[in-house]
Design a protein around this nucleic acid. Structure first.
Lengths: 175, 175
DNA sequence: CTCGGAGCGTCCACAATGGACTGTCTTGAC
DNA sequence: GTCAAGACAGTCCATTGTGGACGCTCCGAG
């Protein structure tokens, strides 16, 4: 009978499979790996770590420099993680204020939607450029974790698709 | 000095521009228009409606059949909406458990990721088919709100991109 | 040496989620 | 015609997620 954990806790346990990490590290790790596709806040991370420690899924180590407290995954933690994984990924949670702007376009000040779309296009293009840069770099360092690569690839795919979508919007919208 | 509202309240006010709606209607409306790109729960909607009524952004009408209580947007409500819109769309919130699965793939039972990806491919393909069906239907009814169309188009673009992404994943992942 | 900023964590108020629960009306099977 | 299933409409609560303020500790540039 393993402890039932939520997706947030599961993601932390996932990262802890690679070795002990502090809360701070975990936030950074998530940021670097799934970045925009898995939001995680400090508050959340520390809360879950404390809870998981209580349930024995994780054990805190000696606090080191600057109060850094590394957590190590336990066997129970690994079991809980496997258990969560077996239940499959849950529903996605998505809130895109940009799309809200688009669907409510009719009720916005004229021209506002146009401006916002232009900004977003620029933003997505910049993002895409970043991703491509990272991919290039990883290729040169011949870092080859296919899972990270695949996630990056998803970012590239979606950013590209978004830019193309904006470019093909009919003139009534890009008014 | 208009009341500062959050994105959720703003979305409700946006829909109310088209005429009075009950909380239930608002949930349905959101579902039909931005569907997967703007999550809204009942609890949230009723809470915001009550708050907005308190602030005079919205006025409740006579409760009709089955306790249905329609809300009408006020001038203050329209002002608050315009104000929110002028501040621009905020940050997107995204949590894709599928991507979490992919990046943590290394630590999953062998084969699990493969299964999950196959399911997701099917899911996205079905979604895409739905969207295309809706687009077709709207075309025939020559319903022509370009904003709704644009949102639909986004769904199509992303679903398609996702399917292609899955199809092109390297064999080490679709192991 | 010192002081500004990065590393590390706590805490809190507020927002969002999901589901249990309660009622009301409609409809269609019998 | 009735009555059960299920759509409509809303309340409430526990849990989860978000964002920022705050407070320490250390490092390094000047």
């Amino acid at each position: 009978m393993t402890t039932e954990i939520n997706a947030t806790a599961a993601s932390l346990l996932g990262f802890l499979h690679d070795g002990p990490l502090t809360g701070w590290d975990l936030v950074a790790r998530a940021e670097q790996t799934i970045g925009p596709f898995w939001s995680l806040t400090k508050s959340q991370v520390y809360r879950e770590l404390a809870l998981m420690a209580e349930h024995g899924l994780v054990t805190p180590g000696e606090t080191g420099r600057r109060d850094a407290k590394p957590y190590t995954i336990t066997d129970a933690g690994r079991a809980a993680f496997a258990d969560w994984a077996a239940r499959g990924p849950g529903e996605a949670t998505i809130r895109l204020p940009l799309l809200l702007f688009v669907t409510l376009g009719k009720h916005l000040e004229p021209g506002l939607l146009r401006t916002v779309l232009a900004e977003q296009r620029a933003h997505q293009a910049a993002l895409l450029k970043d991703y491509l840069g990272i991919r290039q770099m990883l290729g040169e360092l011949d870092e080859q974790d296919p899972h990270l690569l695949a996630t990056l690839e998803y970012g590239i795919t979606v950013a590209r698709a978004t830019v193309r979508w904006i470019d093909r919007l009919p003139p009534e919208i890009a008014s």
